[in-house]
């Protein structure tokens, strides 16, 4: 990303694959490469990529007849951002997610950071609907009693527009949600159902942008958010769980590091002082054990806990079960 103008090539920088279909003047027609909280390739397929390439061609031809270029802005690349420039050592390779790191840490330095800045590119499931993988304008499922259900959205509906933006991909949907207010807000929606155009409105409640831990777990940008547990590890497999006499479908992980280095070493010291050791098997935190991954546990800790609280950590040391009280620190 060195030298790449992130104001022009503006995408979800946590993604491992992002495609912008665009005009030479900087207008972005569509975005491809988005994912949900389940799998990095949940919404990538040859069929869907070819589909968006083909459908962009007529959109491009129409735009060329009546162009409306975006306003010119001073280019900004990640290597020119103040926080990155101030680092003692510059990376050999500037990864996409470093854009988010530089924005977040730069805002912290200026005292302008707000947690909602981390709620980037919300997944449609936060408002209660998902889209198909191969034809991403088509609604795959609607969660009962969600904002999508209240808006009357149905499985099989084809999304035409959200706000004024033409929708072809999950990336297009997430971009509209990214630009929407984190407060209670209304998002106009136009869908095609049984050959007819139907207009409705998604009513997003206050705080809707804060992601579920599962949707936040995959993001590299989650590591910048506090509070931090100060330790982590590797999830135990079925055989390891059986050996310990645990349900083989249970979630548990073995602590294989406490953070003893860098600017967050105090979090590891805090965990050690509370009684957490390398080799412990973590069974539950705050009474909760239904995590799908250690990454989701990290996301939950950062999203749901606040500095100043205490959280009970149930663990296994050898064959002995213990519960320690961990003060939550930023």
């Amino acid at each position: 990303m060195k030298g790449v103008d992130v104001r022009t090539y503006d995408f979800d920088f946590d993604l491992t694959l992002a495609v912008l279909l665009m005009n030479a003047d900087g207008t972005i027609y569509h975005r491809y490469g988005a994912r949900d909280g389940t799998d990095p390739q949940s919404h990538t397929s040859v069929k869907s990529f070819v589909d968006v390439l083909r459908k962009t061609l007529p959109a491009h031809a129409a735009y060329q007849k009546n162009p409306s270029p975006p306003a010119k802005r001073e280019p900004l690349s990640v290597d020119r951002m103040p926080w990155m420039k101030a680092r003692p050592k510059q990376p050999e390779c500037y990864h996409c997610h470093m854009v988010n790191d530089a924005v977040t840490e730069g805002a912290k330095d200026l005292g302008t950071f707000r947690r909602q800045m981390a709620w980037r590119y919300p997944d449609s499931s936060e408002l209660g609907f998902t889209v198909e993988r191969d034809d991403q304008a088509v609604v795959a499922a609607v969660t009962p009693e969600s904002p999508a259900a209240t808006a009357g959205l149905r499985t099989g509906d084809r999304l035409l527009r959200m706000e004024s933006r033409r929708i072809l991909t999950l990336g297009d949907v997430q971009r509209v949600l990214h630009e929407a207010s984190p407060q209670a807000t209304r998002i106009p929606l136009q869908v095609e159902r049984a050959g007819k155009s139907v207009r409705t409105t998604l009513r997003a409640p206050k705080g809707w942008k804060e992601p579920s831990p599962r949707n936040f777990a995959w993001r590299a940008s989650k590591w910048r958010l506090s509070p931090k547990p100060g330790f982590g590890g590797r999830r135990l497999g079925a055989a390891q769980l059986r050996t310990l006499g645990l349900d083989e479908k249970a979630f548990a992980f073995r602590v294989n590091y406490l953070v003893t280095w860098g600017e967050h070493a105090h979090t590891g010291r805090n965990a050690a002082k509370a009684g957490i050791r390398k080799g412990d098997v973590i069974l539950a935190t705050g009474g909760k054990s239904d995590f799908h991954s250690v990454a989701e546990w990290h996301a939950w800790f950062r999203l749901k806990l606040r500095a100043g609280q205490e959280v009970a950590v149930k663990l296994l040391r050898g064959r002995t079960e213990k519960t320690v009280t961990l003060p939550v620190v930023d």
Binding site: V19, L20, A24, H60
Partner: peptide
Amino acid sequence: DLDAARAAARETGRPIVAVFR
């Protein structure tokens, strides 16, 4: 090269597919 891609697209009137990996 992104700048070359934009210049070529401007010249030919074709769209750009910018892939970041």
